Amino acid sequence: MTESTIHPTAIVAPGAQIGAGVKIGPFCMVGENAVLHDGVELISHVVVDGRTAIGADTRIFPFASVGHQPQDLKFHGEESRLEIGARCTIRESVTINPGTEGGGMLTKVGDDCLLMAGSHVAHDAIVGNNVVLANYVGIAGHAVVGDYVRFGGICAVHQKVRIGSHAFIGAHSMVDGDVIPYGMAVGNRARLAGLNLVGLRRASLDREAIHRLRAAYRMIFSSEGTLRERVDDAAVMFKDESLVQDVVAFIASAKDRPLTLPRADSDEE
């Protein structure tokens, strides 16, 4: 097993669990309840505190603050947790906070995520695998972000918003409503601007399945009848299409925030 290396200027509290091959660089601080799994690297000036577990081979760059108490006035010291997955890259000045009693006691970031400089993941947020947060993206408390979501720079996501898997959020967007899986949302306040066709193709999804998803999108977001009626019709017409059923299930499970919709004059798909 590869030995861990800890720079002489770093401070690692007694009780911290340090895996094999961990590298802790100059002027880092690791709290007593932190767990750094095998191969984690803290490059320099990184602070990891609280009940925080960081997955194998994750790299954290200077001045990131990981696991400090949430920015929530209702927090009163409860023993909440933060989990960060394997092979993530967390760049300079990123902040990630643990959960709270009012939100499930857990903040979670999945595997293979890239959090660019200055981005923020707030208390009780759940971020999936292979997510990219560009510079200065802010994910508010209790938000849920699916797998393979991509954010352009300087986006803000309202608390309790859900963003479905494979969605794309354009730069400078303020997202205050749920965004369907495979959708593309842009603007302040963000509106649905069609499907994330570039992301769907990059994911090597079947071309015919994408065509059928586009047809279902046009049906669901047409102007005839109510949204519920259109969703029900799509569920029946495309009952064997997994991509469409992902969208149908996402819309049906909405509870905290409104759905992000296209502009009334939009013909995007």
Rank of each mutant, 00 (worst) to 15 (best):
E79P: 02
M174R: 10
Y217D: 06
A143L: 08
N33I: 01
K108G: 02
R212E: 15
D246E: 10
D246K: 07
G85P: 02
V186F: 13
I18Q: 09
S242R: 04
G110W: 07
G164V: 01
M29Y: 15
H123M: 00
K160Q: 10
I180E: 07
G128N: 00
A156E: 11
A34P: 07
L259W: 12
R87V: 01
C88Y: 02
F61C: 04
V248W: 11
A34I: 05
R218N: 13
L205K: 12
G183F: 02
A216Q: 05
D176V: 09
G103K: 04
N130W: 09
E208T: 14
L259V: 10
G164Y: 02
G146I: 05
K239A: 15
L115W: 08
A234Y: 06
V131L: 03
T89F: 10
E83G: 05
K74T: 02
H166K: 03
G85M: 03
M237G: 02
E83A: 11
M105W: 04
A252D: 15
E208P: 03
P258A: 06
P70R: 00
G152K: 09
R212H: 14
G25L: 13
I96W: 02
S253T: 10
Q245T: 04
M174T: 12
K160D: 14
F250T: 00
K255A: 09
H158L: 05
N129S: 02
Y182P: 01
E41S: 15
S253C: 06
L114Q: 08
R191Y: 11
G67Q: 03
H211I: 09
F75T: 00
N130Y: 12
M105Y: 05
E92Q: 01
T95Y: 06
R87L: 04
D206F: 05
R263D: 14
R214T: 07
A117R: 02
Q71A: 00
F221C: 13
K160N: 14
I169G: 04
S80E: 00
R150G: 12
M184K: 09
L115Q: 13
S266L: 01
F61L: 11
R212M: 11
H172R: 08
V248H: 12
T52I: 13
L243N: 03
E229T: 10
G103L: 05
G183R: 01
A134S: 14
Q71V: 00
E269R: 11
K23I: 14
I126F: 07
A64Y: 09
H45D: 14
G102R: 00
S44H: 06
M219W: 06
V47A: 10
A53K: 15
V22D: 09
R212Q: 15
V248C: 14
H142L: 03
V175S: 07
A13W: 00
P14G: 06
P62K: 01
G187D: 11
